[in-house]
Nucleic acid binder design. Structure first.
Length: 461
RNA sequence: GUCCCCUUCGUCUAGUGGUUAGGACACCUGGUUUUCAUCCAGGCAACAGGAGUUCGACUCUCCUAGGGGACGCCA
């Protein structure tokens, strides 16, 4: 009980759940689960300007879509404001923090001056020893140690040691009386008994500051694990201009939750040569694997491949039922099931089912010009007419019957299959890419096939 | 500018002093197939560069270069 692992994911609700955030959360969650621990969700909603409750909802929805359940109830950081403030007061009392009356204006000038001189912008400690009292526009600053360094052993990066000279006295309570991020995080992590902080490596620089606050508060700091960022295909940090970056967008595109999860986890984590890990395997084996310490590039191609793999594992009945619950032409009947079985190996995204099945549910309106140019000529039209009359009079309509008829006409003219197969495919589907023509014709049905050939002949004559 | 992190095929990665540097995606070739897709077989392709340490470096150390990140009264 004492040494139970507790991790947390702490997004700020300023937008939908981002792929990068989702992966960090996944790592934190899997880390906890593979150690039989807990993972908590803390919404960092203290930026009242940008935080929106609808975003909180969207974030939680994305996680439940991915089958990630956080433990206990969701914690809202804004509700802990009093705790943060009282921690700040204690710090002032113990002389680990002090009031500061420097204006934003002065700070801004100071920063510019330092930058100009090639220095790292830092607070110069003007009020550090002034022993000021609380005033109407004073802030509280943390009295960061000026000597020594802060070493910590990162779970993924190894030993990192940062000199206190690099750190300055950061503001922990604003002049309007609200606590700032670095204070809130520490107080909440203590409050929630967090044992391991798994977060993006853009937080590495905050870590030594936070460790100093932990110490000043008399608490033991958690173990940290900083996971590298995800980059876009151009090697820059993944952002909006790289296209789809939200979990919700992938859901819309028809990516399966397990596929997205598997892809995201493998992006930066590995266990030997294995690629496919189902949910249970991840939960059981995550801690045996290795988190990479360099940033990785997002690849839609590979995600697509994962999706295809997961798609192929779903049986047709289940697939049909999810498909018919989506905005597609599929419904829960035999015809849809046959269509599905005919086209499923041609699809890697759920959205592919619509485009691949179009001609099964709707009339062929447009013929692919390239296909027409390649396959339709006078001879093709004559052959189509011949096949048409055989089709019309056929008593039975199985794929084998269609096959037989085509071959009969073919052998009469001593021609190869393509002479009829291709034009027929164009007539029935509008293009030359489709499943085998006999099965396609069978599923389409005799009546539809006859009508489409008639229409095509009229169109091309 | 300062500090921090990172660097194996195009991409995701395995590798922890001695390997023909392995797998996956993508790509290419061949086979199966009435087209495409699927499937099967094969192929191309990498240790950023330079110094050390060592009998021996992809593996350890340092430097350089490149990439990413952080430097807010945002989180």
């Amino acid at each position: 009980m004492e040494n139970k692992v507790i991790t947390r994911f702490a997004p700020s609700p300023t937008g939908r759940l981002h792929i990068g955030g989702a992966r960090t959360a996944l790592f934190a969650w899997l880390f906890a689960k593979s150690h039989q621990g807990k993972c908590l969700l803390r919404i960092e909603d203290t930026d009242l300007e940008r935080s929106k409750s609808e975003h909180t909802k969207a974030i939680i929805d994305s996680f439940s879509w991915m089958n990630i359940q956080f433990d206990d109830e969701v914690i809202y950081q804004s509700k802990n404001k009093e705790k943060h403030l009282s921690a700040a007061k204690n710090l002032v009392k113990s002389n680990a923090a002090y009031f500061c009356s420097c204006t934003s204006e002065r700070l801004k000038n100071l920063r510019e001056e330092q930058q100009k001189n090639g220095l790292k912008p830092k607070y110069d400690g003007k009020c550090r020893e002034l022993d000021l009292k609380e005033g109407s526009d004073t802030v509280i600053r943390f009295r960061n140690p000026q000597e020594g360094s802060v070493p910590f052993t990162d779970l993924v990066k190894g030993v990192i040691e940062i000199s206190n000279h690099e750190l300055d006295d950061l503001i922990i309570v604003r002049s309007n009386g609200t606590p700032t991020y670095n204070l809130s995080v520490v107080v909440d992590d203590i409050d929630m008994d967090i044992t391991h902080v798994i977060r993006g490596d853009d937080h590495i620089n905050n870590t030594p500051r936070q460790i100093n606050i932990f110490k000043a508060l008399g608490a033991k700091e958690p173990i940290y694990g900083h996971v590298p960022m995800i980059l876009g295909e151009d090697g820059k940090r993944l952002s909006k201009r790289h296209g789809a970056v939200g979990v919700f967008e992938y859901e819309q595109l028809g990516v399966l939750p397990d596929a997205l999860k598997n892809y995201l986890v493998r992006l930066g984590w590995s266990l030997g040569d294995q690629e496919i890990f189902n949910h249970e395997e991840l939960v059981n084996k995550f801690k045996e694997g290795n988190i990479n310490n360099s940033p990785s590039t997002f690849s839609f191609e590979k995600l697509s491949w994962f999706n295809k793999e997961y798609l192929s594992q779903i049986d047709s009945e289940n697939l049909l039922s999810t498909l018919s619950s989506m905005e597609t032409e599929f419904s829960q009947d035999d015809y849809s099931l046959e269509v599905l079985n005919l086209i499923r190996q041609r699809c890697s995204l759920m959205s592919d089912f619509s485009s691949e099945s179009e001609y099964f549910f709707r009339e062929v309106e447009d013929y692919d010009p390239k296909a027409v140019k390649k396959c339709i000529n006078q001879q093709a039209i004559e052959l189509l007419s011949e096949v048409l009359s055989e089709f019309e009079s056929s008593k039975s309509w199985k794929a084998s019957d269609v096959q037989e008829i085509i071959e009969k006409v073919l052998s009469k003219h001593e021609l190869g299959f393509g002479k009829i197969g291709l034009p027929l495919r164009v007539a029935l589907t509008g293009s030359i890419n489709s499943p085998s023509i006999d099965r396609t014709a069978e599923v389409l049905g005799q009546k539809v096939v006859v009508e489409r050939i008639q229409k095509a002949i009229k169109e091309f004559s």
